[in-house]
Design a binder for these strands. Sequence first.
DNA 1: TTGAAAGCGCTAACAC
DNA 2: GTGTTAGCGCTTTCAA
Lengths: 331, 331
Amino acid sequence: MSRPPHRGRPATIIDVAEAAGVSRQTVTRAMNDMPGISRVTKERVLEVAKELSYRPSRYGRGLVGHSRRTIGLVVDDLTNPYYPQLASAVVSSATERGWNVMLAQTAGAADEAALVADLAAQADVLIGYPRTADGAPHDALVGVPFVHVDAGPSTPGGGVELDATAAMEDLADHLIERGARRPALLDVGTGTVATDRGRSFMRAMATRGVPAVRQTCELSTFGSGASGARALLAAHPGVDAVMAFNDVMACGVLRAMHESGVEVPGQLRLAGCDGLDLGTVVHPALTTLALDMAEVARAAVGMALGMFEGTVPLEGYRTRVRHRLLVRSST
Amino acid sequence: MSRPPHRGRPATIIDVAEAAGVSRQTVTRAMNDMPGISRVTKERVLEVAKELSYRPSRYGRGLVGHSRRTIGLVVDDLTNPYYPQLASAVVSSATERGWNVMLAQTAGAADEAALVADLAAQADVLIGYPRTADGAPHDALVGVPFVHVDAGPSTPGGGVELDATAAMEDLADHLIERGARRPALLDVGTGTVATDRGRSFMRAMATRGVPAVRQTCELSTFGSGASGARALLAAHPGVDAVMAFNDVMACGVLRAMHESGVEVPGQLRLAGCDGLDLGTVVHPALTTLALDMAEVARAAVGMALGMFEGTVPLEGYRTRVRHRLLVRSST
DNA sequence: TTGAAAGCGCTAACAC
DNA sequence: GTGTTAGCGCTTTCAA
């Protein structure tokens, strides 16, 4: 009686108890299928609860009971097939261990820092790709267990390092064996600083006496792969092999080649990186440096949970996952 | 002093307060960048907090403050590009309104009902595709605001209906104009019960005096699109147009045609459904019945929030989103 | 079968 | 600038 639920204020357990003329504990018993309550009382309570559209507060519940564990996953853009494939693996891995996954997407966010901070407040640990200008961690992340995927040596927090160097050596051998003599790298970024995997490719080819030229795109999208390929062929008409920064860009290259009438792999061998399912949808299927996403996810989730439990330090811990050459039809 | 943090028990605000020799309130001030605290005290408190690896409990916090709102999104399988594209739109739409999104993936879950129940306990409202054997709602969902995407007329909870009938009419006209005389539907499901969109297609073609044959696949995947297409052409060699249940299957059809040397659209016109980005990656780009995912997401999120606020009833509410014919190169 | 009391971790409001 | 009090909504004792 004392507090009829107002418009806007959600009903609490007390509202239900009073409306049903029982104690709060009895409401708890009814809501949670607990023993020690008569069938009639239970039904009446549930009836009232429904009437009041009562939903137990997860905060009150979490405060007293075994709190649910949740992982915050920060991805850049679910529209880029790389991220859903990672997210799928992370969700599976987390679900297996009884954790939930909360998702944030930084692309298009007005205030990315706020977004990450908010996620950090909701989750016990964070995994992902927060695009902090590659240096200082987000302020909100100090003291928060965080696993950076695709971490560099000096990335703050824990990290899963993705290492393509060995696979790149295999790719170089493979391309040369297939007859490549004028290879090119379609890298991402601005200026002359190659990405790690770009550098690996350049070095692997140079080492074998078949140096590659380098063309860069600003974005790592399908569209920029296509336009980058056109620019590349305009500048270096003799190119007979292209290693693209990732599979999505490689698909763009493939599209551009289709449109220019260049045959793949006949006239141009093409390789991507990441091992996305997407690479099996296009024709010819993409040769790629494949990442085992399930392995990446297991590593990241395992490390994050370790950090949460205190068995893994919050800073400096690293795991490495290696790419593997996966030869399909585009080379 | 009274309660030194044990191994396993996370430090609370009281642990920090005692260790730093201040009150709980002062710890709160330090942690939350609040005014009314001297710089030195603040630093000392933060120091201690770090030492004890203290993280404020989100439950305690949520209980007292303005609780964060979270949407639970249930998808079948992030590996199917349809879902990430929807998820991306939902996350954007939710973020815009200040809500978080928690994600659950039913594919591969040991106990799907438990998964959904758990999500329901964590979130304020649910959106998605819970695969309950199309009838009774999950038990855990009674009283929980739920918006079913792609709802049928009798689906429990709120629903966003996806309606392809009008677009299907346009497609039928388009196919016939392009010369199709022996069209086929590559539907999903078992037996003779066509899907809604399958039925629309059959009817639209029949109405125009160009009846279509129907072939079904068990799954709506890339692989089953490919094998379904092979089976279809084996059974009906003269087919000159295929409408696939969705874009992913249509890509499979395209792959099978490449392999059989059938030209698309030259010998076979091909259309998909959903309007996924994927359709622009393949060659030729896929003609499709496109869904505006941003619109779907806005509708679902808007309805879910309305249900949460009590302005929309928990049952029976419907919104309709229509597909639109998007002609690209495969027809 | 039911109810009363205690307390989970935190912050807003109000002392001092 | 700092501490004290009260209370958020819930479940877990324990007592009736």
